[in-house]
């Protein structure tokens, strides 16, 4: 239990770090949204699941899954709203040259 929790926490922390690096490295807004996607899904899910392993059975567990569900439902909506607003604000995505 402890080991599974530690592994998940580590994966989550790494994913968060990668997402943060991605937010800095990516060339434009739309590609940065993909990097945020990593922190929102794998990062948050792995850390919250890791915590669920040490939370024990009870109200804490339910609340952890509630937070996870809220994050997984709302973050894509926020990303979509952001991308859509940027398109409407006449920001054209940086596209690679077609091969």
């Amino acid at each position: 239990m402890e080991i599974a929790s530690a592994i998940l926490l580590l994966i989550g922390a790494l994913a968060m770090l990668v997402g943060g690096i991605g937010i800095l490295r990516m060339p434009d807004l739309f590609t940065r949204l993909h990097a945020v996607g990593i922190t929102d899904t794998l990062g948050a899910a792995a850390i919250l699941l890791g915590l669920a392993f040490i939370a024990g059975w009870g109200l804490l567990l339910v609340k952890l899954f509630l937070i996870l569900a809220v994050l997984l439902l709302l973050n894509p909506t926020a990303s979509h709203a952001l991308g859509r607003a940027a398109v409407h604000g006449a920001r054209r995505p940086w596209l690679s040259a077609p091969k």
Binding site: M16, I23, R32, T39, A44, L71
Partner: peptide
């Protein structure tokens, strides 16, 4: 652009939520 800043704030929020949870434990 302003959208980059909102994106950063949004990512910051997600991390804060996870951080507060972990901090509680």
């Amino acid at each position: 652009t302003v959208y980059d800043r909102i994106l950063a704030a949004n990512a910051f929020t997600t991390k804060t939520i996870v951080m507060v949870t972990t901090f509680g434990f």
